[in-house]
């Protein structure tokens, strides 16, 4: 009886470890939740054409990914914001490198309102004043007489930081801005709130409308799409980054080269982001 139990256990353990046994090279990727679907799609496509390489992708957020890079628990870190100076210093203390930055995709940050909202376009300045709490009524930007309800992301999000640095020019969000856990939650909230405004990736959207954005009052307004983002006409677009500790070599280099190749960049478009070149 005991013997059978032990042998069954042995077989199970054997099977499990065989199942997990990596064949060939393993590359671990960790970081931004914004990029996690993109990273998975890259990994799947790459692994189907390179069966000798295993790529493990996990999310967790840009900050989590960068911490993992600093702690040496991941090979590639995905980040939707550039690395901070303090993080680079930590990496230098640990590995004596400053890290290598790879611009792997482009993202247009869309501004959403509910479909019924009459406001069609905003200037960057108006957007800034709305989110810092200087403009509080839709009437002030050509809409109906109603209070503007602000939806923002949690402050751990790369998108939050990007919007703050580039649209609010470093100023603080208004205290009444509601922090939603994820872009999907922002979209959902705006779709149910006729006085709401939110921001997030251009890939999302149902029940909401993108507001056209103008660089200033005299320039033309653009919606986030491939042409406007690639040409730089759409004013709120950002790079999505990958970081490695040192200059990539071997299997890692092949993978990154593939991501930057036209094949890898085609994947970017299918996920709803925009290629870097």
């Amino acid at each position: 009886m005991k013997k059978t139990t032990i042998s069954i256990l042995a077989v199970i353990i054997g099977l499990v470890s065989f199942g997990f046994a990596p064949n060939g090279e393993i590359i671990t990727v960790k970081g931004s939740d914004t990029m996690v679907i993109l990273a998975q799609r890259w990994a799947e496509n790459y692994m189907s054409s390179h069966p000798d390489v295993t790529i493990q992708v996990t999310g967790g957020g840009s900050g989590t990914g960068i911490s993992a890079l600093i702690n040496g628990t991941t090979d590639i870190c995905d980040a939707s914001r550039p690395m901070k100076q303090s993080e680079r210093e930590k990496l230098k203390l640990r590995f004596n490198t400053l890290g290598v930055e790879i611009k792997s995709a482009r993202d247009g940050l869309a501004v959403y309102v509910q479909e019924s909202n009459p406001v069609k376009e905003l200037t960057l300045q108006q957007l800034k004043e709305i989110y810092t709490g200087k403009i509080t009524n839709w009437k002030q930007v050509g809409g109906s007489d109603a209070k503007i309800i602000l939806y923002s992301r949690e402050n751990n999000s790369g998108t939050y930081v990007y919007f703050k640095d580039n649209v609010l020019e470093g100023e603080d969000y208004a205290a009444s801005a509601q922090n939603m856990p994820g872009t999907a939650a922002v979209v959902n909230a705006v779709s149910k709130d006729k006085n709401g405004i939110g921001y997030g990736g251009a890939a999302y959207g149902k029940g909401i409308r993108f507001v056209k954005i103008k660089r200033d009052a005299d320039s033309p307004a653009y919606e986030p799409n491939k042409e406007s983002v690639m040409s730089g006409n759409y004013p709120i677009s950002r790079f999505l980054y990958m970081y490695t500790r040192s200059k990539p070599t071997g299997a890692l280099k092949d993978y990154i080269d593939w991501i930057l190749s036209s094949e890898g960049q085609t994947v970017v478009s299918t996920v709803g982001y925009f290629p870097v070149k």
Binding site: K84, S86, L98, E101, I102, K103, N166, G170, G232, K247
Partner: peptide, 28 residues
């Protein structure tokens, strides 16, 4: 100390006007 970080595969990438402003909150 502020040192320049290495980049990789950046050839031919067109910089867009509002790119990579230095993060405003590096101060602890």
């Amino acid at each position: 100390q502020i040192e320049q970080q290495e980049t990789y595969g950046g050839e031919g990438v067109q910089e867009v006007a509002m790119q990579s402003k230095t993060s405003s909150h590096d101060t602890e």
